[in-house]
Simulated scan of single mutants.
Amino acid sequence: MDFLDFKLPTPIYKFDKNDLQHIYEPSEDTFLFMDALELEKSFIKTLEPTIILEIGSGSGVLTTFLALNFDLDNTHFMATDINPLACVKTSETIHLNYSQLPLKVKRPKVSIFIDDLAQSIIDRLNYNIDMIIFNPPYVPTHDITDNGQSGDFNIINRSWAGGLNGSEIIFKSLDNITRLLTHNGIFYLLLCADNDIDNIKNYIKNKFHFNSCIVLKRRAINEILYIVKFYKTHPFM
């Protein structure tokens, strides 16, 4: 599907050497996610979402991409990350791109906060979020704090270390995601071939009654990546 002509601009972002030690830099998975969202633009706009949440915002590029390019002026964007430095970087990315806009252009509201898989907002926003995006830690590792070198863990490893089959954080997030979404809410999840995608899709179908479809698939250097959409109503309603 790489023959598709993607036209929406990528947000500006800046990383220095210190950032690279602590925050996940946009990579193939990030760009695949943006391309998938571009394919879904018309559908997302028909939802007229009141709230869009990104779990694990990292650089803030995905939330900024939506806020800049989707004409969702009345949507409240929320971005969370367990890493405080990632939350700071998300804010920097949003403000950097907003500063490039003409003064008369409306800037959608974005709230950024430190959180672990959106746990802190469940009681307040139970069944009130229209759309969630999540690029999870998906790389198979010995455990979710493993970077391949025993005893050498730091916070950036949380951004990619996915534990057994790369899916431990994915499964951990599902109760929160499904409790936050409205009845017609949707969520987009990045997965890789090593995650046992059919198992994840079947689990979500059987336990939470969400259907699914693959929006976009791409081979990266050493992995095959997918953006999967989960929904309860027809995906093209």
Rank of each mutant, 00 (worst) to 15 (best):
L8M: 14
T10Q: 06
Y13H: 13
D16M: 10
Y24P: 04
E25C: 10
F31H: 08
F31G: 01
D35Q: 15
L37Y: 05
E38F: 11
E40H: 09
S42E: 14
I44R: 08
I44D: 05
K45C: 04
I52N: 02
L53F: 04
L53E: 01
L53D: 02
S57M: 11
L62H: 01
T64W: 12
A67N: 09
A67G: 08
A67D: 04
N69R: 02
F70D: 00
F70K: 06
F70G: 06
H76P: 00
A79M: 00
A79W: 09
N83P: 07
A86H: 10
C87N: 09
T90L: 02
T93L: 06
T93M: 10
I94E: 00
N97R: 12
S99N: 15
L101D: 11
L101I: 15
P102M: 12
P102C: 13
L103E: 12
L103G: 03
K106C: 08
R107D: 08
P108S: 12
P108I: 06
S111G: 03
S111H: 11
I112D: 08
I112E: 10
F113T: 11
I114P: 05
I114W: 04
D115Q: 11
D116S: 13
A118R: 08
A118F: 07
S120V: 08
I122W: 03
D123T: 15
I132D: 02
F134T: 10
P136F: 02
P137N: 00
Y138L: 05
P140V: 13
T141Q: 10
D143L: 06
G148M: 12
F153N: 00
I155G: 02
R158H: 10
A161F: 09
G162M: 11
G162N: 06
N165E: 12
E168M: 07
I169R: 05
I170R: 05
K172D: 11
S173Y: 05
S173T: 11
L180S: 06
H183R: 14
G185Q: 10
F187W: 14
Y188R: 13
Y188P: 05
L191G: 09
C192A: 14
A193D: 14
D196G: 07
D196I: 03
I197P: 00
I197T: 08
N199P: 00
K201Y: 01
K207D: 06
F208Q: 00
F208P: 02
H209R: 14
F210R: 04
C213T: 10
V215G: 05
V215T: 13
K217C: 13
R218D: 01
R218F: 03
A220N: 06
N222S: 15
E223P: 07
E223H: 07
L225K: 10
Y226E: 07
V228W: 09
K229D: 01
K229C: 13
H234D: 14
H234C: 07
P235C: 03
F236C: 01
F236A: 08
M237S: 12
